[in-house]
Computed example of a mutant assay.
Amino acid sequence: MHALGYPGSANLLVRYLKQGRAEPDRVPPSPRRRVTWLTSKPENLPEHDRSHLQDLITSCPPMTTLAQRVREFATIPTRRRGHDLDAWIDAVLGDDLPALHRFVHRLREDNEAVLAGLTLPHSNGPTEGVVNKIEMLKRQTYGRASFALISKRILLNQ
């Protein structure tokens, strides 16, 4: 390699080749990346990821169904359409998607709570935000301040 003009060490070249950087098109995408593609809006993905997603969906009929069901489900909480949940669950149970079947059975176990969360306008988000702020302040002063100082910081930051 040195005769051809490569200035680096052999060890560096071997590490580079083992990481698969020499041929990135031949390295299959990780399952996490595929899930990211499926759960993202296609128009929000970069062009190369969008083409990979299209190849993934068209290469496997169950993957086409999975992508369709994931997109349908995404509209239910974002548009507060809890009344569409039962129809979506029935459609999923009619498909041959065992991983989604487990998810649907868990949704059915807490059906009342899920429907309330998807239809009612109430939210515990503000409360969770305050709790998160208190926990952050507590972590910042851990081991450095007494309870009195922590409580004063919490009251001043409200």
Rank of each mutant, 00 (worst) to 15 (best):
I134Y: 07
L100I: 03
L107S: 04
N124G: 15
G125P: 01
A91N: 09
G125H: 02
D84A: 11
L137S: 08
A91R: 15
A116C: 07
G143K: 06
V131R: 09
G94K: 04
A113T: 07
D95C: 10
T141I: 06
L107I: 05
L97H: 01
L100H: 03
L120W: 00
N132M: 07
E112A: 15
N132L: 06
H122E: 14
D90M: 07
G117P: 01
G117S: 10
R106T: 05
D90L: 08
G82H: 06
V131N: 15
D84G: 00
L93D: 07
D95R: 00
G117C: 11
G94N: 11
L118Y: 04
R153Q: 13
H105Q: 14
N132F: 04
G125W: 00
T119P: 00
E112L: 15
D90Y: 02
F147Q: 09
S151C: 03
V130W: 12
L93C: 05
V130K: 08
T141Q: 12
R153M: 14
L115W: 03
K133Y: 09
V114Y: 03
K138A: 14
R144V: 01
W88S: 01
I89D: 00
A113N: 09
T119F: 05
F147W: 13
A91M: 08
L93Y: 03
R153G: 04
H122S: 13
L85A: 07
R108E: 15
P98Q: 09
R139F: 02
K133I: 10
L149H: 09
A99I: 07
Y142I: 02
G117H: 06
N124C: 05
E135H: 10
R139H: 12
T127H: 11
L120A: 13
N124H: 10
D86Q: 13
R106S: 14
G117N: 10
N124D: 13
L97E: 00
L118S: 06
A116V: 01
W88F: 10
L137R: 04
L107W: 01
G125R: 02
A116I: 00
L120S: 11
A113M: 13
G143I: 00
L85C: 01
L118F: 05
V130T: 08
V92G: 05
V130L: 15
H101K: 04
F103R: 06
H122N: 10
R106Y: 11
I89L: 04
S151L: 14
S146D: 15
Y142N: 13
R108V: 10
P98I: 04
V130P: 01
Q140K: 12
G82P: 05
H83Y: 04
L100V: 02
A91F: 05
V114L: 11
I134S: 02
F147I: 01
G94Q: 12
K152R: 14
V131G: 01
R144W: 13
I89H: 00
R108P: 04
L97C: 02
D110S: 14
N132I: 03
A91I: 00
I150Q: 08
L118H: 06
D90F: 02
H122D: 13
H105D: 15
R106E: 15
Y142H: 13
N111L: 15
P98M: 11
V114Q: 03
F103S: 06
E112G: 09
R139S: 09
L137T: 09
T141D: 10
L93S: 03
L85H: 01
S123I: 00
H101V: 00
P121L: 06
